[in-house]
Simulated assay, not measured.
Amino acid sequence: MFRTVKNLRGRGRKPKVTTVLARWIMREVKKNPRITTKAILMNLGSAGGNISRQTVQRTLHTTGFHGRRPRRTPLLQIRNTKGRLAFANAHLDKEKDFWSSVLWSDETKIELFGHNDLAFIWRKKGEAFNPKNTIPTVKHGGGNLMFWRCFSADGPGNLITVNSTMKKEQYIKILNNHIRQSAEKLGLGHQWTFQHDNDPKHTAKVVKK
């Protein structure tokens, strides 16, 4: 009748999720990224017809939404947020030369054995304790190492191992011994800005002095 072997529009099973329904599901996820497919179906009620959780999942996947673990970020209080915004606004129009004259510093902790990150694996039933599917652990976590380092736009400065927990006295000693030396090595000249975060040992009165 149609003189063609192509699939014609209107043939086949109609999709259960209409365009309007798909937009509604996307709005629900945008309003609350933590909402579950079960909760979406409950909110839909009779409007959702007989669609399943898998259908909702597929609808979200086709629109670019996928389930992921939320990233961990520092807990910021209102004063922290205001401080960051004020810093950003104050330095918004700074020239590239200004940022080239800034010396930044921070500390980091490295686990000696294993890591703190959560991981996923694919395994079959009964293979939970297969060595390939486990993460080895040691008593008390195996310990860690703390490092301090400074850096600028031109590269890294000195790298220092921190013994035990860094306190303000040890921080002052590091600054006295390594800040100027790093600035000279990085070619910052005689006028440069030192920048560190608001960690309590950084903001102690004796450190500021």
Rank of each mutant, 00 (worst) to 15 (best):
R149Y: 05
Q54T: 12
N158A: 10
K124S: 14
T81V: 15
R79M: 11
H178T: 12
N50H: 11
L76T: 06
I35A: 01
S164F: 01
H196E: 15
N32H: 04
H91Q: 03
N177M: 07
D197K: 10
L103Y: 09
N32R: 12
L118K: 12
T137W: 00
Q170S: 11
N144F: 06
R27V: 07
D97S: 13
Q54I: 08
N7W: 01
S182F: 03
T19V: 08
R149T: 14
L175I: 10
Y171K: 02
S101Y: 08
R58S: 11
G48C: 12
R58Q: 13
T134W: 01
R123K: 15
H66T: 03
G189W: 10
E169M: 06
T108M: 03
R13Q: 09
C150P: 05
P15Y: 05
W104N: 02
K6R: 10
T18Y: 01
T59R: 07
A153E: 10
T19G: 13
S152H: 04
N176W: 00
F2Y: 12
L188D: 05
K30L: 15
K209D: 14
R79Q: 14
G141I: 03
K125S: 09
H202I: 10
G64C: 03
F87K: 03
K94M: 14
N89F: 12
M42H: 08
T203A: 14
M1A: 12
P200T: 03
I51G: 02
N133D: 05
K173D: 09
L85P: 01
R69G: 02
